[in-house]
């Protein structure tokens, strides 16, 4: 087993409840997560909204004080590292936020925004100027260098934000839904730029998205999350298909993604998304989180076990781990 770049072990994150009458003052958002991300991986995290994938992304860059378990980066605990020297850590780990509008300073020009980031890495004036020009050229926003963020279109703003992050030359990038709500004509460009940077600098990317189709195209390892728990991890997603063995939740994500791609799939007979409201009933932490929506629960003998015990991640074959009582 090679040394992992990022190691998340037994990690649980609690947040304080807003409701004062609630029985539990602290609500667990992430429960017992174990992940290991290797050098130069493109690691995908999939799940529906509210499953905690963005929270995990923010935890990986140390935006919250961690509550249980630990996250190690290069064999060193990140909270300690940030406490000792935050600058050093932030030079190596960067995050692309979901909303580019709030990530850019509205009172600075694009050029200055990027210069600010380049200054962290270099101190020579000439090299700074060269680097700013190179990044503006790479991101194809040279003609917008004197504009303010509100004058840019959505895609240009996204690229300006990306340029700022690549200017620091990090070794780990966490991309939190970088292409959601972007036009088709932009999506490919943003992903191209990210992957090119990864190739050139041998960087690691954690790609967070709800679109399993997109994740499968670009990632080499995928973790599927549901209700703050990892329910499946598999390598080389290109080899897998929706008819292979999967966790029932992954299966549901596959059908949903296929629904928009496949013309043949009829609208009324398809069953995916029927049980979506079961999530409204709160999950109390015991048993399988997916139990209420699961299609297997009526057919399988394990129905009783599902309610009582959370299934552990089990190796199904060489490159796939599934947490389900129904799959042996």
């Amino acid at each position: 087993m090679e040394d992992a770049l990022v190691k998340v072990s037994n990690f649980t994150q609690y947040f304080r409840s807003r409701d004062k009458n609630e029985k539990l003052p602290f609500i667990p958002y992430l429960r017992g997560i174990n992940l290991s991300i290797n050098q130069s991986d493109v690691y995908g995290i999939v799940g529906e909204s509210g499953c905690g994938k963005s929270t995990l992304g923010k935890c990986l860059v140390g935006l919250f004080s961690l509550t249980e378990g630990n996250i190690q980066y290069h064999g060193r605990e990140i909270n300690e590292w940030i406490h000792d020297s935050a600058d050093e850590f932030r030079k190596q780990v960067q995050i692309i936020f979901q909303n580019p509008r709030s990530a850019l300073n509205m009172s600075m020009r694009v050029e200055d925004l990027i210069r600010e980031a380049v200054k962290i890495k270099y101190s020579n004036d000439k090299i700074i100027k060269q680097n700013v020009n190179r990044i503006l050229y790479d991101m194809q926003i040279e003609h917008k260098r004197r504009d303010y963020p509100h004058q840019l279109s959505g895609g240009e703003r996204r690229r300006a934000g990306l340029g700022r992050i690549l200017a620091v030359e990090p070794t780990l990038i966490i991309a939190d839904e970088p292409v959601s709500s972007l036009d088709v004509s932009y999506k490919g460009l943003i992903i191209d730029l990210l992957l090119k940077y990864k190739q050139k600098n041998n960087a690691t990317i954690v790609f967070i998205s709800h679109d399993i189709h997109l994740i499968n195209q670009i990632c080499n390892r995928v973790a599927v999350m549901f209700m703050g728990k990892v329910v499946e991890i598999f390598d080389n997603p290109k080899k897998f298909n929706h008819y292979d063995i999967h966790h029932p939740y992954t299966q549901e994500l596959y059908t949903a993604a296929l629904f928009f791609k496949d013309k043949e799939m009829s609208i009324i007979s398809d069953k995916s998304g029927e049980f979506i409201d079961a999530e409204y009933a709160k999950y109390d932490g015991t048993g399988c989180p997916y139990f209420q929506r699961c299609e297997l629960k009526n057919t399988m003998m394990c129905a009783l076990k599902c309610k009582e015990k959370f299934p552990e991640l089990i190796d199904v074959n060489d490159n796939q781990k599934i947490a389900c009582h129904g799959i042996k």
């Binding site: 994500l253 949903a256 629904f259 995916s272 998304g273 979506i276």
Partner: peptide, 14 residues
Amino acid sequence: TTGLDIVNQVVVVK
């Protein structure tokens, strides 16, 4: 459907 995740998109379409 923009801003919704893919499972919810399917439900809305239906």
